[in-house]
Design a protein around this nucleic acid. Structure first.
Lengths: 183, 183
DNA sequence: TTAAATACGGAGGGGTCCCCCGTTTGTCAA
DNA sequence: TTGACAAACGGGGGACCCCTCCGTATTTAA
């Protein structure tokens, strides 16, 4: 907020336009879209893009931030569910969300790699949510020993990257993993 | 074999040299190493590399073929193990193998994408092995309903990509998924 | 209104992938 | 052995990408 105010009007407009275009392109072509292409379609020079977003990861982060934040918010508002179900349901939802948003899975897996470090990145948001849920589920003994929040996030993201655009399969396999593949 | 005989002597040598160098480079830098760099170090022009391997995937395929074949062979020779253990153990071994060989996981996940289609690719080899193991385990009811060979391969590979160079974590998480994360 | 601060974007260096095509090299038949 | 032909080579170039420099244009605040 206070950061935004410091931007000149044109800067602010360009920045927004870039994110907007990037969201669209990334959704359509995946996380490795050409940054030049994004700049071109946003009607700015590539230098401008790079000035606003020093790394591809930084741009992706901003592109996905809102959606992820919204997703995270949902974790809090689950009325009187059992901790295990709470965790499982949210993880499932997160996986589906990630699998249906091209590029997000890759971005999450990459973590805060090459980021300004200051800001709370998507990875951290998700991780924080999971830590709480894992804690709760653990407390009632509903979790396999040794399963950490990091593990779960990694697993969910891994499944999502492997199934970009196939949320159905992603969800199914995640469920399998949660309930166990052996019998 | 009959294909190889058709190659001229120098062609054969170059081809081998390229694969050799590629194996080394991919192991050290991952699946996205520069093809030009490979060509350079192999002492051939980039055109030569592209003539031998029309796509990056084709090259990776050859780089990994032997190792994967060997891995697959191990699946057959398991003396009187229970089907469930047979499957679990092999999958674990495969995951560790994949996670310790940079670039392999990505190549396996990509599947036969852009390949000559004729030859048996690594993905197919693994899949064939898994189909047998899954069948056996299924027959004795040791597998969760709905778990397919494709699912298992995808899961194992997904975990491996997410943990390139960290086979320890990869194995741990795979085990969690096999036995179930909820309790 | 104007000077300082800020943001812009063309251009270019260094890289990659991939292919064309003139040249070299291996092969095999005579 | 030799020569002609097929096979393989690789320099070079086009198209693209990332990223940065730096002269220019715009905004802002005085």
């Amino acid at each position: 907020m206070e950061q935004v105010k410091r931007l000149r009007a044109d800067g602010r407009r360009n920045r927004e336009r870039i994110v907007e275009v990037a969201a669209e392109l990334v959704a359509r072509e995946g996380a490795q879209v050409s940054l030049e292409e994004i700049a071109r379609r946003a009607g700015v020079g590539s230098a401008t893009l790079h000035r606003h977003f020093p790394s591809r990861q930084a741009l992706l982060e901003v592109v996905f931030r809102d959606g992820v934040a919204q997703l995270c918010a949902k974790a809090a508002a689950q009325p009187g569910k059992a901790p295990a179900a709470e965790l499982a349901d949210w993880l499932e939802e997160a996986t589906v969300y990630t699998a249906t948003h091209r590029g997000l899975a890759a971005a999450l897996l990459a973590g805060p790699e090459g980021l300004s470090a200051e800001e709370l990145c998507c990875t951290d948001m998700v991780l924080n949510v999971l830590k709480v849920l894992v804690e709760r589920a653990s407390a009632v003994g509903a979790l396999q020993a040794g399963a950490t929040a990091e593990d779960l996030m990694m697993l969910a993201n891994a499944i999502a990257v492997a199934n970009e655009n196939d949320p159905h399969t992603a969800r199914r396999v995640l469920r399998l993993a949660l309930t166990g593949i052996r019998r």
